[in-house]
Design a protein around this nucleic acid. Structure first.
Lengths: 166, 166
DNA sequence: GCATTTTCATTTGTATACTAACAATAATTG
DNA sequence: CAATTATTGTTAGTATACAAATGAAAATGC
């Protein structure tokens, strides 16, 4: 294997899913199997998704949150930093770092809002705009690859169920 | 609202889900709606889950990954650090930090493996063992609360679908 | 119109999570 | 057995992600 032993491939499948006959006397084992819990399953599905994301976007591509911000900005309007955070499900501290890194790479620009001195308006730079079509193409491939193990109907069902856990 | 404007509650629902008539001339908008992509939906579902986790476990409770490690160790056996990482879907660098923080809090112990000088064996401390029953109780409540918006059948379906995205 | 509250952005601190590079030790193979 | 390869654990660096606290500015209420 070329890439390091990342969790996403090498140790992908959990090793010990055995469900002991509840014998040994270490307190009450209870019927709790970590590998069957929502949180654990979601974490692992996310790890796989992020690995796919990085593979398809490439080494100099945006991270998932960076792309989310760019995607929302691609509509063309200037948006305040915090509002952009809400639109992409990032809190103010998180969106700040994401925008700062996008700005370092020349993909977005920050400018003061003339109407509200607290606000910082964020928008795509010309370079950012140029990147959008290619990124959207890759983003579609990422979603498809992530859902590849499922049929169309199953994928639709999963998305609908996930949307209800908001 | 008492807690800061965290994404998990205040800005929970995406704001702009409007699907413009593909008018404006900023390149090709393509039919890509961030809010409908697997990655985005999983990220938001995870954010909500983690918020529930922290609320139920409490301020001095373990984090999700810390609990995952403790849960696997509760079987009673000593496990090498890397193997424990594979069992809980964490790479070596990540499990190291998790175990270090559990050790600082006196919940796990690290000891050299007599048969393999590279290995570090990890096990629950007495204090860690005592904490397990209460933590398992809370962990079940966390899974239930996370899945609360869904019916039994829907929850089962979601878990089955997530398990296939591994 | 002024005090209270809210919003916006920032900073600091903690915890994941991964890549990459490394050293030490085991296991394998010629 | 010696050389190669693999495994284990560590360190350093980057990027999320959130809590909590702060200061500045805007909105609200009375």
């Amino acid at each position: 294997m070329s890439r390091q032993d990342s969790v996403a491939d090498t140790a992908a499948k959990p090793i010990a899913r055995q469900r002991k006959p509840s014998s040994a006397g270490t307190a009450a084992p209870m019927d709790y199997v970590l590998d069957e819990q929502v949180g654990f399953l979601m974490r692992r599905a996310q790890q796989r998704h992020i690995a796919i994301f990085q593979r398809i976007m490439g080494d100099d591509g945006p991270t998932p949150t960076q792309f989310a911000a760019m995607s929302k900005l691609s509509a063309g309007e200037e948006i305040s930093q915090n509002l952009l955070g809400r639109m992409t499900a990032m809190d103010p501290a998180t969106i700040k770092g994401v925008i700062a890194r996008l700005e370092e790479r020349g993909l977005v620009e920050r400018l003061p809002d003339p109407d509200d001195q607290r606000r910082v308006r964020v928008r795509l730079s010309a370079k950012g705009h140029e990147a959008i079509p290619g990124l959207l193409e890759k983003a579609k491939a990422i979603s498809a690859a992530t859902l590849a193990p499922l049929s169309r109907e199953e994928a639709e069902r999963l998305l609908a169920l996930l949307a209800r856990l908001d």
